[in-house]
Lab assay of single mutants.
Amino acid sequence: NCLEGLIFVITGVLESIERDEAKSLIERYGGKVTGNVSKKTNYLVMGRDSGQSKSDKAAALGTKIIDEDGLLNLI
């Protein structure tokens, strides 16, 4: 459970895995996936064609922004 207690938001199109697979992977390792960035969000996983508003909010809140490889490296 290397992601225990961590909260993730996924945005954009992921290249190597589907969004549902990424969500399942995060949950399997103890993390939680939500739909919107908040002060409780630990990581924003940004894929291709992701919206600017979520990354702006993450930056404003100090949320770590990672890509798909960054997510896989956490596991």
Rank of each mutant, 00 (worst) to 15 (best):
N1C: 04
N1L: 06
N1I: 05
N1A: 07
C2A: 04
C2V: 04
C2Q: 07
C2I: 07
C2M: 10
C2N: 05
C2S: 11
L3W: 01
L3K: 04
L3I: 05
E4G: 01
E4A: 06
E4W: 01
G5P: 01
G5Y: 15
G5E: 03
G5T: 00
G5H: 02
L6A: 07
L6P: 00
L6N: 08
L6D: 03
L6C: 06
L6R: 07
L6Y: 06
L6F: 05
L6K: 15
I7L: 11
I7K: 10
I7F: 13
I7W: 10
I7V: 11
I7N: 15
I7T: 14
F8R: 03
F8E: 03
F8P: 03
F8Y: 00
V9H: 07
V9G: 07
V9C: 14
V9F: 04
T11P: 07
T11M: 09
G12S: 02
G12I: 00
G12W: 02
G12E: 04
V13L: 09
V13R: 15
L14K: 06
L14G: 06
L14M: 12
L14Y: 03
L14A: 05
L14P: 06
E15T: 10
E15Y: 07
S16F: 08
S16Q: 12
S16M: 09
I17V: 09
I17A: 08
E18Y: 01
E18H: 11
E18R: 14
R19N: 14
R19S: 09
R19F: 10
R19Y: 14
R19K: 11
D20N: 13
D20G: 11
E21F: 04
E21Q: 10
E21I: 04
E21T: 09
A22R: 03
A22K: 02
A22T: 06
A22P: 02
K23A: 09
K23D: 02
K23T: 11
S24F: 09
S24V: 11
S24A: 13
S24Q: 13
S24P: 02
S24H: 12
S24M: 13
L25P: 05
L25R: 04
I26N: 04
I26C: 01
I26M: 00
I26H: 00
I26V: 05
I26Q: 00
I26E: 00
I26T: 00
E27I: 06
E27W: 03
R28A: 10
R28N: 05
R28S: 12
R28V: 04
R28D: 06
Y29G: 05
Y29D: 03
Y29L: 11
Y29P: 02
G30D: 00
G30R: 01
G31I: 01
G31S: 01
G31R: 02
V33I: 05
T34Q: 15
T34R: 11
T34C: 12
T34H: 15
T34L: 12
T34W: 05
T34E: 15
G35R: 15
G35E: 15
G35N: 15
G35W: 08
N36H: 11
N36Y: 13
V37L: 14
V37T: 02
V37K: 04
V37A: 03
S38V: 01
S38M: 01
S38A: 03
S38W: 00
S38C: 11
K39D: 10
K39E: 14
K39A: 14
K39Y: 07
K39H: 14
K39T: 11
K40N: 10
K40Q: 12
K40D: 15
K40R: 11
T41F: 00
T41I: 04
N42S: 08
L44G: 01
L44P: 01
L44W: 07
V45H: 01
V45D: 01
V45E: 00
V45I: 09
M46L: 13
M46D: 04
M46G: 03
M46K: 13
G47V: 11
R48L: 05
R48F: 02
R48A: 07
D49H: 13
S50T: 10
G51T: 15
G51S: 15
G51A: 15
G51I: 13
G51Q: 15
Q52G: 12
Q52Y: 13
Q52A: 09
S53D: 15
S53C: 11
S53Y: 13
S53F: 13
S53R: 14
S55E: 10
S55R: 15
S55D: 09
D56Q: 13
D56S: 12
D56H: 10
D56C: 11
D56V: 12
D56F: 08
K57F: 10
K57S: 10
A58R: 06
A58E: 06
A58L: 06
A59S: 09
A60V: 10
A60H: 08
L61A: 08
L61E: 08
L61F: 14
L61S: 08
L61G: 07
L61T: 09
G62I: 02
G62V: 01
G62Q: 04
G62W: 03
G62H: 07
T63L: 09
T63S: 04
T63F: 05
T63P: 08
T63N: 01
K64M: 09
K64R: 10
K64W: 03
I65G: 01
I65M: 10
I65F: 05
I65K: 04
I66M: 01
I66N: 01
I66V: 08
I66L: 06
D67C: 04
D67Y: 04
E68Q: 11
E68T: 14
E68W: 14
E68G: 09
D69C: 09
D69Y: 11
G70S: 05
G70V: 04
G70T: 07
G70C: 05
G70Y: 07
L71G: 03
L71H: 03
L72V: 06
L72T: 04
L72K: 09
L72W: 11
L72F: 14
N73H: 08
L74T: 02
L74C: 04
L74R: 03
I75H: 03
I75Y: 03
